[in-house]
Design a binder for these strands. Structure first.
Lengths: 105, 105
DNA sequence: CCTGCGGTTCGAAAATTTTCGTACCCCGTC
DNA sequence: GACGGGGTACGAAAATTTTCGAACCGCAGG
């Protein structure tokens, strides 16, 4: 089995988790990057998150469990993209983030 | 001296601190409450934050240092209000919070 | 088939956040 | 002026988050 990645139902995700996930600058910048092309799947190797590979993996998990991203394995590498239904669950939250920390900030 | 409460210049406040402060539901609800009447000073005794008095005091401090609130002592009790220049520093962030957790949610 | 690369998970250690008690302060009241 | 109510600051303990290494897995290439 290609490793089970838990993407919780968004109805289970609480604001605590979302704000908690966004309380880290590197994670915030990942979200901003993904949001800049919401339909694109981005290889996680291209994302600027410091630390060992287990640390990076931990950050993807935090973002996943906050409902912010979808993570898909391609055997040879991981792809991340913005979770498309996030906006529906927490409308406006991402807009607000992008306005504060979007391109050019 | 009536106890020195540190209200940092908003330019010093980072988004990390703001999202961190909002990662706690009780603190979020305080902000929502204060935002419901932004010019009003609310006695902190009326706010629903559980814990001992030092714990409550700690939460005010977190909110203060995130630039979210202004805290004023009246000798006989503390008054809190929304920090008026917060919106200017982090435009849209409060709106987003209120939309998600405002009255009736 | 073996090896290397890119990943996850687990467990432990480190760092940070949260909680509380205690000591202390200010103010109003008796 | 002593007392009590409402607060902050500090220090220690508890809880949570973050980091890392080690063990492991799947796939692509030689």
């Amino acid at each position: 089995m290609p490793v089970q990645l838990s993407h919780p139902p968004l109805t289970d995700v609480q604001l605590d988790a979302v704000y908690g996930a966004l309380a880290d600058r590197h994670r915030r910048l990942v979200v901003v990057r993904l949001a800049s092309s919401p339909d694109e799947e981005v290889p996680c190797t291209t994302l600027d998150v410091p630390g060992s590979k287990s640390t990076r993996s931990y950050h993807w998990k935090v973002l996943r469990e906050a409902g912010l991203i979808v993570q898909r394995s391609t055997g040879t590498g991981m792809l991340l993209r913005l979770r498309p239904d996030f906006e529906e669950r927490f409308p406006g939250l991402l807009d607000s983030l992008l306005r504060l920390e979007g391109p050019g900030r």
